[in-house]
Design a protein around this nucleic acid. Structure first.
Length: 552
RNA sequence: GGCCUGUUGGUGAAGUGGCUUAACACACUGCCCUCUCAAGGCAGCAUUCACGGAUUCGAAUUCCGUACAGGCUACCA
């Protein structure tokens, strides 16, 4: 076909496209950003659900853009109407917001480079396709599904590469007359790339994470525009990321095999390609089969985004976990920098895992504990209030009624270099601090205490009457030891162990008895702190309660 | 079938030819500290980097094969 014929063809195919590529190039000029600023994007398709992998990639996008004073935008990739789910887009924006992953541009976030929804960009894609047809890099293909399947079957038998390329791309060299005829017969068509690639040549691509990769040049006549005039992912990606001036395409590594195509498209269109960073998928070892697989929402509760909110895992702790799988040196850094937050850490692609990252629930749990240990009692109180507001209204009410007490209890052993690490989620607070609220304690006391040991109520009553709570922890313990000795108990557990016949027990036994009566359990944070907060009157009430229980 | 990518302990991993008798963290086990728990301290946990060959004075690190895993091979993203 001559150029003149190609122009005629382009007009025939896209009579309504009046704008030119120059128009768009001018409309979306270079971004005015400081040196080194990264422009990243998250491009979900609105299939409704968001899972950890999506969240992870969006997290990376955000973090790299943020630390370089760049732009992180949200683009809805809804070129496939079949996959669209009602409310899917709202769900995505909702989840992002819930997880504190906020784009600073894009769909529902505004910006100069929109529209940020691919279904609203059809005219743009078609403008560039029209141009490609004129240049001879694209052509209409009228092959039916059946014809294509036949070719694939034949290729499978001959054990050659499967697809539409070279000699198999029969509509490549259709004459203008032939095309006109098919159009008049109302034959349906797609627009395919007329790939100039030579598969015997190698191309080398440098990925920010994976490093150098070699591929044969792309030579498939890949579909660019579908029958309905909408673009395929590949074409939309190239056009959008060029016009929106994305500098770094951060995406899942299921895309690496289409890299040669994307590079080829950028070249043909005369665009400079962005840098690519392909991130490893989050995997898990299947409990039943032992096989390594991708996270599955059906089998793994933690794959779905909702799980974290419902079970009370703090968003910030999840960010911490995402950061540790994003950059392998983050974990150690965070541990050694008690006073720093994620925002103080500089992420880099070469510290990003290359192979699949296995989801580690135990590590997440530990990270959550560390997170809570660094929060003050008041902060934990306030955050738990927000959580229970939504997921445990009854407890929320109790928390509000017992605010001052709760904050004091939550603050026990928080000072110093080794703060307690006993809660991992907001939902743990209720259980861990069951002894904190009197009205709840009564109920909990009976159901939770399962020991069969019966403690001496009179002894502990006397003990409580005798000690002074208005003192220091050290002084309190001295008093306790004195009391123990007076009643025939050893001052130190070791003494008792050496001569068990000489004593009734040791100081720890006194504490244990008091602890059970006061908290309803054999394990608790520092007993003295708890006693001090409760005060003698409430302690005595609890001893009465214990009496009732043990005589039952 | 073809084309890519990956494979270091129970887990996440550090490691870019000699400083590695393979870091660190999580998990687990034991001991210590201790009024219980949590935390913390110490110690243990891969004689070896999927396997086989090659290059080299020297390889977890380079090259070639094999196995396994994952991805792509759609008018899905």
């Amino acid at each position: 076909m001559t150029e003149k014929e190609r122009i005629e063809l382009a007009e025939l195919l896209f009579p309504n496209i009046k704008k030119t590529r120059e128009y768009y190039e001018e409309k979306y000029p270079e971004r005015n950003l400081p040196d080194g600023a990264m422009v990243t994007r998250y491009g979900p398709s609105p299939t409704g659900s968001v899972h950890l992998g999506n969240l992870f990639s969006a997290f990376c996008d955000m973090v790299y853009a943020k630390q370089s004073n760049g732009v992180f935008f949200l683009r809805i990739e809804d070129t496939d109407q079949k996959r669209a789910v009602e409310g899917g887009i709202e769900n995505i924006t909702g989840v992002l917001k819930g997880f504190d992953i906020t784009p600073n541009e894009g769909y529902t976030f505004g910006g100069e480079y929109g529209p940020y929804k691919q279904s609203e960009r059809t005219e743009i894609y078609q403008t560039y396709i029209k141009d490609l047809i004129i240049k001879g890099y694209a052509y209409p293909c009228f092959m039916t599904e059946e014809e294509q399947n036949n070719i694939k079957e034949e290729q499978a038998i001959n054990k050659t590469k499967i697809g539409i390329y070279g000699m198999y791309a029969v509509d490549r060299d259709l004459s203008l007359e032939e095309i006109k005829e098919k159009l008049e017969n109302k034959e349906e068509y797609v627009i395919r790339l007329k790939s100039p690639g030579n598969p015997n040549k190698q191309i080398e691509v440098v990925d920010c994470i994976k490093g150098k990769m070699k591929f044969p040049e792309h030579d498939m006549d890949t579909v660019l525009l579908k029958k309905d005039g909408t673009p395929t992912y590949h074409f939309a990606h190239v056009i959008d990321d060029h016009l929106m001036h994305t500098t770094h395409v951060i995406r899942g590594d299921e895309w690496v095999s289409s890299l040669p195509l994307h590079i080829e498209l950028f070249e043909i269109l005369g665009f400079t390609p962005p840098k690519y960073a392909h991130i490893a998928p989050i995997t898990i070892k299947d409990q039943e089969t032992g096989a390594i697989r991708k996270l599955s929402k059906r089998k793994d509760p933690w794959a779905g985004a909702k799980f974290y909110e419902e079970s009370g895992i703090p968003i910030e702790a999840l960010h911490l976990y995402l950061a540790t799988i994003a950059n392998t040196n983050f974990e150690e850094w965070y541990l050694n920098n008690q006073d720093k937050t994620i925002n103080d850490f500089t992420f880099s692609f070469d510290k990003q895992a290359i192979g699949g990252t296995s989801f580690d629930e135990a590590k997440l749990n530990n990270l959550c504990k560390t997170y809570f240990s660094r929060k003050s009692g008041e902060e934990v109180y306030n955050e738990t209030l927000i959580y229970t507001e939504k997921f445990d209204k009854d407890y929320n009410k109790l928390l509000k009624e017992n605010k001052d007490d709760m904050i004091q209890f939550l603050s026990i052993e928080k000072d110093g270099p080794r703060p307690r690490k006993d809660i991992a989620k907001y939902s743990d607070v209720k259980e861990e601090f069951s002894y904190a609220i009197d009205s709840m304690f009564e109920k909990e006391f009976y159901s939770k205490y399962e020991g069969d040991k019966v403690y001496d109520v009179d002894l502990i009553t006397e003990y409580i009457n005798n000690i002074n709570l208005d003192t220091t922890n050290e002084e309190w313990f001295n008093q306790t030891k004195e009391f123990a000795v007076k009643h025939g108990y050893a001052e130190k557990p070791k003494d008792y162990k050496k001569n068990p016949d000489s004593y009734k027990g040791h100081v720890g036994d006194i504490c244990e008895a008091a602890r059970v009566m006061i908290t309803g359990r054999t394990k608790s944070p520092d007993l003295f702190s708890i006693m001090k907060i409760l005060g003698k009157d409430r302690i005595k009430e609890r001893i009465e309660l214990y009496k009732k229980y043990s005589n039952r």
